[in-house]
Design a protein around this nucleic acid. Structure first.
Lengths: 230, 230
DNA sequence: ATTGAGTTGTCACAGGATTGTCACTTGATT
DNA sequence: AATCAAGTGACAATCCTGTGACAACTCAAT
């Protein structure tokens, strides 16, 4: 048995397509026609992934997504939506969605993304958290702790932090950060970057005035280093 | 030298815009009006990135993309297309395209995506640390060491150093250095160059008074040599 | 060899550019 | 309403760059 996928979608034709798609690949499928029903099924069972339509009768898909992530954040949620609904990818991050596919979608793409999400979380579960210094970070659950105490980070801060962790040692210019973290269609001033760095330092550095991990490289940008090595 | 970008696009107006966009950023641009021509240019030269229109006369842009990826997959391809053409994103992945921008596109976004793609491939392929004598330099991290000890260099010094490393043995006049390193819009006095050379010598030469690598050519400029050969 | 004009090495300092930090506005969400 | 995150602008602190002065040097003509 490959696993179980929970489909929450009101259009019966799409449900039919999805059921055939996933069962053909060896997955078990449970389907719900409303957000309420989807949430109940989510709580009552242990899906390996959720395919969720954002447009649902009754309860908004966004609410459903948030509720699911609140309950068990490690279960990947792939959002299904019209293009206009995901113009802002940051929104999806705030919802906690792991990936999204726009309608009209290619069944093959959806399948690929669902499988990729399942692989990712399996990997994440086995190696639960990244970290540096006395900071521990769990991106799957969007949780962070410093010296054992929980730290609250916003969606943007997580995204920025992740990019730093993925590119240690390298000097990242403000433009590069704006493009990769804020997105290509957003053009805030470069001061915004400094501000977010400030936030990260205040929350994650032992001594924010003398940053050890989030270092500034004058005239170039910022650099993340795991620890002080002499 | 920033690199070369191959533009394959049949609309001359767009070509003109792209040429201006990339040359303004310091890239060299080669352009092809048809898919066949683009492929030939791709094979005959070594572009750092390709901007490819999907709608081309003669040969389909998809075929071109596939052929390029078959030949040298490490060269990033950024696809330019109308929205309807990329409704199916999985297609782009099958083609092997690295990224895409939909028409009508924002020049700034395209530039950002191309640069990001180039950075990614550079990161993935290799980052051979340059060096000379007992000096090791990592430009991506903006770190340098001499005899194992870390040396702090400013952003400007790195830029100058890189230009020297890219043009070894050649005599570089002060004017050339000012244009290439300081930029075409800055006109400091030529004494500024001497000063920066002094800094490089003090930081990187074993004996700053008798420079081995950063040699002055009286009445002409400076020359960089990797090592002393007897 | 000597001389002198032109060129370069070196230093210190002022001005400018970059960044840290805070307070405020705006817009979204509750 | 109230709260929160994000972006912007202002100010101060900090660092760097460019400039000028003078000494040392190079080269060529005498």
């Amino acid at each position: 048995m490959m696993g179980m996928i929970l489909v929450t979608e009101d259009d019966p034709r799409i449900v039919k397509v999805l059921v055939r798609l996933f069962t053909a690949e060896g997955y078990e499928v449970k389907s719900a026609g409303t957000g309420k029903e989807g949430l109940e099924l989510f709580e009552a069972s242990t899906p390996d992934a959720v395919v969720l339509d954002l447009m649902l009768p009754g309860m908004s898909g966004r609410e459903v997504c948030k509720a699911m992530k609140m309950s068990r954040p490690e279960v990947p949620v792939i959002v299904l939506s019209a293009i206009s609904e995901v113009a802002d990818k940051v929104l999806l991050l705030e919802l906690g969605a792991d990936d999204y596919v726009t309608k009209p979608f290619s069944p093959r793409e959806l399948l690929a993304r669902v499988q990729a999400a399942i692989r990712r979380t399996r990997r994440a579960v086995s190696r639960p958290a990244a970290g540096f210094g006395d900071v521990q970070i769990d991106f799957a659950c969007m949780k962070a702790t410093r010296a054992g105490k929980p730290i609250t980070l916003t969606a943007h801060e997580f995204k920025l932090l992740r990019f730093f962790l993925e590119n240690p040692e390298r000097v990242l210019s403000r433009d590069e950060l704006l493009n990769e973290v804020w997105g290509y269609n957003a053009y805030p001033s470069t001061r915004t970057v400094d501000n977010q760095i400030l936030k990260l330092r205040q929350k994650l550095e032992e001594n924010p005035a003398n940053p050890i991990h989030f270092c500034t490289v004058y005239g170039a940008g910022y650099r993340f280093v795991h620890a002080t090595q002499e």
